[in-house]
């Protein structure tokens, strides 16, 4: 049985000997321009069906959230709390791509140069499966359909999944979901088929600003820590990492983030804990209740012989 809590190497814990380094994503939201190239590339490469056309009235977000048919989701948050330093960073990122071409709005009024006229700030973040060190989805799956790859990622084998839906309720991030029409569970595979060939996952490949970075997790963690340093020096004091800490409630995420506001503002749980951490205690309580049942039955029948 795999361990249920604490910092571990998930591939080794799952029984791989000689596993390659753990791979993951570092998503730096400070340079996300909200182009949704990641959403599109993911759908294209993985042949994910469309999820209907909805106008949600939530800024530029008409995807809504991660689902069986959306494995990347770009969140848009408009805030009346300008952060000039963060806007400078975003501006520079925008300048590296032709936003005109992508049909994207600019984060400031056309023609404005300086820091004036910024009474709004835009947060954008591309969300994805966290490929948790302790993955609730994987722990509870009763068929073995969800499994740990040699890269430390978490993947569904759709030919085994029977659609029990347990993983959906077990994910602390609300990532994995059951597809209506085919009844099976789906989520990001961290492009298992691509990384096995030494390629970069489709979303990271498509990202024009390197907001989505793919690589060895150890290396990404170092890079992310440096990035936070740089941003703090530039005055973006609100920059912080999310999901990078192997001592957190899920043993650290394989896909972690640099955020500019609290996690819940982006739709992320502030302190996720893998539900199976408490599984031994759950069984103990159930055991006491079960013993009580048996004792009640014995007493009820022995107490009164006919």
């Amino acid at each position: 049985m795999n361990s249920l809590f604490g910092p571990i190497d998930p591939a080794k814990d799952a029984g791989y000997t000689d596993a390659p380094p753990r791979m993951g994503f570092f998503t730096d939201t400070s340079v996300c321009i909200g182009c949704k190239a990641c959403e599109v590339a993911c759908k294209e490469w993985n042949a994910v069906p469309d999820d209907g056309f909805d106008l949600l009235g939530m800024s530029y977000d008409n995807t809504g959230g991660l689902s069986a048919n959306s494995w990347r989701h770009v969140a848009f948050i408009e805030q009346a709390a300008p952060s000039p330093a963060a806007m400078d960073v975003l501006r520079e990122a925008e300048a590296t791509v032709s936003t005109q071409f992508l049909g994207m709005p600019s984060s400031t009024l056309p023609g404005t140069e300086g820091r004036e006229g910024r009474d709004l700030r835009w947060l954008m973040m591309s969300n994805v499966c966290k490929h948790c060190t302790h993955a609730g989805c994987l722990d509870v799956c009763p068929t073995g359909s969800l499994f740990r790859t040699e890269y430390g990622t978490v993947v569904v084998q759709e030919d085994i999944c029977n659609g029990c839906g347990y993983c959906v309720a077990a994910c602390p991030y609300g990532v994995i979901d059951r597809r209506e029409d085919d009844g099976r569970a789906w989520k990001c595979t961290l492009c298992y088929d691509r990384i096995g060939e030494g390629m970069t996952p489709a979303c990271a490949q498509a990202c024009p600003t390197q907001s989505i970075q793919y690589g060895e997790l150890d290396e990404l963690r170092e890079r992310a820590a440096q990035r936070v340093e740089v941003l703090h020096q530039r005055g973006v004091t609100e920059a912080k990492l999310y999901g990078h800490d192997p001592d957190d409630g899920v043993g650290g995420d394989g896909a972690f983030f640099l955020l500019l506001d609290e996690p819940e503002v982006y739709g992320l749980p502030p302190d996720p804990v893998v539900t199976t951490r408490d599984l031994p205690s759950m069984w103990k309580h159930a055991g006491v209740a079960a013993l009580g049942m048996a004792a009640a039955a014995v007493v009820a029948f022995l107490g009164r012989r006919p």
């Binding site: 049985m1 068929t143 359909s145 347990y166 199976t276 599984l279």
Partner: peptide, 23 residues
Amino acid sequence: VDLGRPSRFLNMLRVAKPTSPMS
């Protein structure tokens, strides 16, 4: 009937997984 794929019910009887209360 609550399975997305009822015909695959038996997939649960091919494994015994201590971390899964459903198993």
